[in-house]
C-alpha cells in the first residue's frame, strides 16, 4: 500500500512538473513582451531593457524556468537594490498591474471559490443521487419520466442563461432573494447564505442532472447483477439487498467523477462568479484575461491543473478503500 502511494505521489510530481513546463512555454513563447506592457506609454528602449533585466526576462529560457520553479519552493526576488520586490514562497509570480504577489491574490480569492464549490457540490451530490434513486425505483413510471424531463432541461440550459434569469426572476421580479451584499458569514449568516444560494443552484443544476442520470443507470444496472439475485435467493430483506448489494456497487463510480468535478470547481467558476460578482478565483481569472495580466493567468491555470491532479489522486486513494478489486498488495 505504501509503495502504491509512493508511486502515485511520484506520478503526480511528474505530471505537475509537465504542466508547469507546458504552461511556462505557452506564456513564454506566445505572449507579447511583458516588459513593454509594464513600461507603459512613454517608454524608451533603455527603460524596457531595464525592466527586462529586473524581471529576469533577459535570461535564457531554462534559467527563467528554473527561477520560476525554485520560486514556488523558496521564493524569489524581483530586481535588485532598493526597488527589489520580495516574493515569498510559494511564489507564483508578481502582478505588476496590481503590484501584488500573485499568491496573495489567489489566497484572498480561494475561500470564496471554496465556499461556492462546497455548497454547489453538496447540492448536486444530494439532489443528483436522490433523483437518480427515485428514478430507478420508479423506473418507467411518472416520477421517472418527470425527473428525466428535469435532467434534460438542466443539462441543456447554459450556465449564464440560468444565472441571469434566476437573478432576474428571484431578485428583481419576485424579490424573494435580496440583492447580494458583501457580508461575511460571521456578521450576517442569513444574508451570507442567500448571497451564495443562487451561485450554488446555478452551478449545481447541470451536474445534478448528470449525477441523476448516472445514479439511475447504475442502480438499474446493478439490480440486474447476478449477485443481487444471489442476495435475494439467500432470503435477505429487501432493505439489505438494496443497501448492500445494489447501492454500494452503483454509487462507487460516482465517487470518481465527484472528486474530479469538485476539484475542477475549486479552481474557480469563471462564468458564475463573474455573473454574480463574487470575488473568487474564477473572477480573478476573467479579470486578468481582460487586462492581460499574464502572471495571474498563468498562476490560475497552474492552480486548476494542480487541483485536478490532486483530486484525481484523492479519488484513486478513495477507490482503493471502496473497491477491494483495485486494492494493490492484497493478492492471493
Amino acid at each position: 500500500m505504501s509503495r502504491f502511494l509512493l508511486n502515485r505521489l511520484l506520478g503526480m510530481v511528474v505530471v505537475l512538473f509537465g504542466v508547469c513546463l507546458f504552461t511556462f512555454v505557452i506564456f513564454f513563447v506566445l505572449s507579447p513582451d511583458p516588459a513593454v506592457q509594464i513600461c507603459g506609454k512613454n517608454c524608451t528602449p533603455e527603460a524596457i531593457d531595464q525592466i527586462r533585466e529586473n524581471l529576469g526576462l533577459d535570461q535564457p529560457f531554462w534559467t527563467q524556468f528554473w527561477t520560476f520553479i525554485s520560486g514556488l519552493f523558496v521564493g524569489r526576488t524581483y530586481g535588485t537594490g532598493p526597488n527589489a520586490i520580495d516574493c515569498a514562497a510559494p511564489c507564483l509570480g508578481y502582478s505588476f498591474q496590481t503590484s501584488q504577489p500573485v499568491t496573495d491574490m489567489i489566497m484572498q480569492r480561494l475561500p470564496v471559490s471554496a465556499t461556492i464549490a462546497i455548497g454547489a457540490a453538496l447540492l448536486w451530490l444530494l439532489s443528483g443521487v436522490a433523483g437518480g434513486l427515485i428514478s430507478a425505483v420508479r423506473e418507467g413510471r411518472f416520477a421517472d419520466r418527470f425527473i428525466a424531463g428535469l435532467t434534460l432541461t438542466g443539462m441543456s440550459i447554459p450556465n449564464y442563461v440560468l444565472a441571469l434569469s434566476l437573478q432576474f426572476v428571484l431578485v428583481v421580479t419576485l424579490g424573494w432573494l435580496p440583492f447580494p451584499q458583501a457580508v461575511s458569514f460571521g456578521n450576517d449568516p442569513l444574508q451570507w447564505f442567500l448571497n451564495f444560494l443562487m451561485p450554488w443552484i446555478v452551478l449545481a443544476i447541470g451536474a445534478a442532472a448528470v449525477y441523476t442520470r448516472l445514479t439511475r443507470a447504475n442502480v438499474i444496472e446493478s439490480l440486474q447483477e447476478n449477485y443481487v439475485r444471489t442476495a435475494r435467493a439467500k432470503g435477505l430483506s429487501p432493505g439489505l439487498v438494496w443497501r448492500r448489494h445494489a447501492l454500494r456497487p452503483a454509487l462507487t463510480p460516482i465517487v470518481t467523477i465527484f472528486g474530479m468535478d469538485f476539484a475542477n470547481l475549486l479552481g474557480g467558476a469563471l462564468i458564475t462568479e463573474t455573473v454574480f460578482g463574487l470575488n473568487g478565483v474564477g473572477k480573478l481569472a476573467a479579470d486578468s484575461i481582460t487586462k492581460n495580466d499574464q502572471p495571474v493567468i498563468m498562476a490560475v491555470t497552474l492552480l486548476a491543473a494542480f487541483l485536478v491532479v490532486v483530486g484525481a489522486m484523492v479519488v484513486d486513494l478513495l477507490y482503493t478503500a471502496i473497491d477491494p478489486r483495485v486494492r494493490v498488495g492484497s493478492a492471493k
Binding site: 447476478n226 449477485y227 439475485r229 442476495a231 435467493a233 435477505l236 448492500r244 462507487t252 471502496i322 477491494p324
Partner: peptide
C-alpha cells in the same frame, strides 16, 4: 423470504458474478 435461503437454497451458474465483489 423465511423459506428462501434457509430451507430452500440455490446456487447459480457463474460463481464470480453471483458473488458481490465488494464484500469478503
Amino acid at each position: 423470504r423465511a423459506v428462501r435461503g434457509d430451507r430452500i437454497a440455490m446456487i447459480f451458474q457463474d460463481p464470480l458474478s453471483s458473488l458481490n465483489p465488494y464484500y469478503t
